[in-house]
Amino acid sequence: MKTRQKVNPIKKGENFWGYVFIAPNLIATAIFVLIPILFSLYMSFMKWDMINPPEFVGLANFTEKMMRDEQFFIALKNTAVYSFISIPLGVVAAILVAYVLSGDLRGTTVFRSIIFIPVTLSMISVSMIWKWLLNGDYGVVNYFLSFFGIDGISWLGDERYAMMSVILIGIWKSLGFNVVILIAAFKDVPKSLYEAAALDGANGFQKFKNVALPLSAPSIFFVTVMSIINSFQVFDVVYMTTQGGPGDATRVVYYWIYQNAFKFFDMGYASALSWIVFIIIFVFTMLQMKFGGRNQSYD
C-alpha cells in the first residue's frame, strides 16, 4: 500500500492502459511484419514451389542460382539506371517548380493543384492513359513531336526508349508529391532572410542558391530518400505498360522478384532476391543519410 501511494495518483492506470492502447498496433506488426521478415529469411534457404514440401538448400539460392541468373543482374542494372536518372531528374524538377510556386506568381494554387492531380490517382489509371498517349502509331505525343520533325517513335516498344518512357511516367505521377513538400519547406524560410540577402546585393539566383536551398535541406533530403525507396520498388507502371520488355529493357528487380514468386512459383529464390535488394536499399539509405548529414553540417 505504502509503495503504491508513491505513484503519482494523476498517472493512475497509465502503465496498464498504455500497453492496451498500443497492443492492436504491436500485435498486428508482429504478425504482419516481424514474423514475415523471419519467415522470408527462412524461405531464402529453401527451395519451395508451394506444392511440394520446402526443401533446405543452404546458401544455394544466393550462390549458384543467383550467379547464374543473368536476368537478375540485368534487372539490377535496369533498376540502377531507373534510380540514377529518375531521382536527380525528379528532385531537381520538383525543386525548381516548388521554388517558383512558393513565390508570388499569379495562380500558384491553381498550378499546384493541377500538378498534384496525378498523385491522387492510381498508377494503374495513369499507366493506361500514358500507354495510349505514347502509342507509336497513333499516339498524341508523337503527333506533337511531328511538328518538330521527330517521327514515329515507338516509346514503350523500342528498347532504346522504353526505360526513359517509364521514368518519365513515374516523374509525371510523383512530381506533385515532391513539389507540395518542397513548397511547404520554401515557404518556411523566413522572409527576413531574403530581404537581408537582397540588401547585400544578392540576385534572384543567389537568393535561391544561398538562402532557399540550404534552409530547405532537410525537406530536400526527405524527398530524395523517399525517391530512392520508391525507385527500388517500381512495379505498377512496368506491369501495366511493358511487362519488363521489350526484351529485358524495363525488367526491374521488383518485377523480376514478382515473376519468380508468382509466375515461376520459386518462393525460396524470390525471397533470397528480395533480401539482396533490401540490403542494397538499406546501404543506399545509410550512405545517403551520412552524406546528407555531412552536407547539412557544412552549410
Binding site: 504482419f32 522470408s40 524461405m43 520498388q233 521488383y254 522478384i257 524470390a270 533490401f278 536499399i281
Partner: peptide
C-alpha cells in the same frame, strides 16, 4: 524501413 517486397511472399 522494411520494404514491401520482403513482406510480399511471406504474407
Amino acid at each position: 524501413m522494411v520494404p514491401g517486397m520482403i513482406l510480399l511472399i511471406p504474407r
